[in-house]
Computed example of a mutant assay.
Amino acid sequence: MTETSLATGGGARRALPADVVAEISRVAALDRVILASDFDGTLAPFVEDPMDATPVAGAMDVLREASRLDGVTVALVSGRDVDTLRLLSGATAEEAIALVGSHGAQSSRDDMTSGALLDDTARARLADLDAALVEVQRRHPQARIERKPAAVALHTRGLPDDVAAAALADAALLGDRDGVHALAGKSVLELGVVETSKGIALRALARLVDADAVVYLGDDVTDEKAFALLPASEGHLTIKVGTGDTCASCRVDDIDDVLTVLVEFVRHRRG
């Protein structure tokens, strides 16, 4: 993406709220900044089959441009495992884009703890959890199971509301097991065997790179934990994408606005 097209986001775009622009200008001027975004529902529109998700056109180009700017660390943060996140986002291992997967339990960076390294107890707990979720799926065959290094998840996107609610309620009972951590999202329930969150992972990354602030965009209830751990009082900028209650410091309407936020960040950083 050229500097000219980057400055416009590849075309005419809706103006961002004034408070968002002011905050982007503030954080872009700091010495060391993390620019991080959730993937599904923030960079990539939701689709019925999660493996069909693709980033909105231009988003990865802008993130790559941001990653080449001095003092900027770019991260994609997702409930997806790192390998799937890399496949769907198109971010290569050679690029300076950190991938944080499985809600913070995994990272593409060697200096961040990976939840894929489970001890024997957690590994056995995960195997038992997987088998139990398979039984749930047998009772609700339209639901889909996703397996991750430290968790299993039940997806119900695209199902009738009553079918989805019944499947998720059945799966939620597994969250009462010892050592199991349940995390509900949009049309998904994840059951993990290590306690972590996107916010914990982002704070760890901020310490590693000595960041002055984190910019984080997210749309889901799972992103609220990250927003809560990245308060505006500490200089961070959190942006809720879409409607719904939030503890984020700012809000934008949709994925098109996310692209505009990224473009504005790069533009202000260059300036």
Score class of each variant (00 low, 15 high):
Leu173Tyr: 04
Ala169Val: 09
Asp170Ser: 13
Leu88Ala: 07
Gly158Ile: 06
Ala213Ile: 01
Leu217Gly: 03
Lys225Phe: 05
Ile239Cys: 09
Leu174Met: 09
Ala122Arg: 15
Ala169Met: 10
Ser114Asn: 15
Arg144Trp: 00
Leu202Lys: 02
Val180His: 11
Tyr216Gln: 02
Lys186Ala: 14
Ala232Pro: 00
Arg139Glu: 15
Gly175Val: 07
Thr2Leu: 07
Met112Thr: 03
Arg80Asn: 03
Gly11Leu: 02
Ala165His: 12
Ala12Asn: 10
Ser107Asp: 07
Thr121Asp: 15
Thr73Glu: 06
Thr196Arg: 15
Glu190Phe: 05
Arg270Asp: 00
Asp110Val: 15
Asp40Lys: 05
Ala143Gln: 07
Val74Met: 08
Ala131Thr: 12
Cys247Thr: 14
Asp70Val: 08
Ser249Leu: 06
Ala28Trp: 05
Asp178Arg: 13
Leu6Gly: 12
Val194His: 08
Asp120Cys: 04
Asp110Gln: 14
Gly192Thr: 11
Ala91Asn: 08
Gln106Asn: 14
Thr121His: 11
Leu63Ala: 09
Phe46Asn: 09
Gly175Trp: 12
Ala248Tyr: 01
Ala132Gln: 09
Ala226Tyr: 04
Ala211Asp: 01
Asp253Asn: 14
Pro231Gly: 03
Ser114Glu: 13
Gly41Asp: 11
Ser25Asn: 12
Val261Asp: 11
Ala172Tyr: 10
Ala122Met: 06
Gly58Phe: 07
Glu95Leu: 10
Thr4Pro: 09
Leu6Thr: 09
Ala248Lys: 02
Thr238Tyr: 00
Lys186Tyr: 15
Leu230Cys: 05
Ala182Glu: 07
Pro160His: 05
Asp170Lys: 01
Val188Asp: 08
Arg267Gln: 13
Glu65Gln: 13
Tyr216Thr: 01
Gly41Ile: 10
Arg68Cys: 07
Ser107Arg: 08
Leu117Ile: 10
Asp256Arg: 12
Val27Arg: 02
Arg125Lys: 12
Ala167Met: 05
Leu63Asp: 08
Gly58Pro: 07
Ser233Gly: 07
Arg125Leu: 06
Ala167Arg: 05
Ala116Gly: 08
Lys225Glu: 14
Ala36Asp: 04
Phe265Ala: 09
Thr8Ala: 05
Val62Cys: 13
Ala206Ile: 03
Asp178Ser: 13
Leu129Met: 11
Val77Lys: 08
Thr121Ile: 13
Glu190Thr: 14
Arg14Glu: 02
Val180Ala: 08
Ala150Pro: 09
Leu76Ala: 06
Ala206Cys: 02
Thr156Gln: 06
Tyr216Asn: 01
Val193Tyr: 04
Val188Gly: 10
His155Pro: 00
Gly104Trp: 07
Ser25Ala: 15
Asp223Arg: 10
Thr156Phe: 01
Val193Ile: 12
His236Pro: 00
Ala232Phe: 00
Thr92Phe: 00
Leu76Arg: 05
Ala15Tyr: 03
Asp83Phe: 00
Ala36Ile: 03
Ala226Leu: 02
Gly79Gln: 07
Ser5Arg: 11
Glu23Val: 01
Met112Tyr: 03
Ala213Lys: 04
Ala91Leu: 04
Glu135Cys: 14
Ala91His: 06
Asp52Ser: 15
Asp256Phe: 06
Ser78Met: 06
Ala150Arg: 08
Leu87Thr: 06
Arg138Lys: 14
Leu191Tyr: 03
Asp83Trp: 00
Asp31Glu: 15
Asp161His: 10
Ala29Gly: 15
Asp38Asn: 10
Ala213Trp: 00
Asp212Val: 01
Ala18Ser: 13
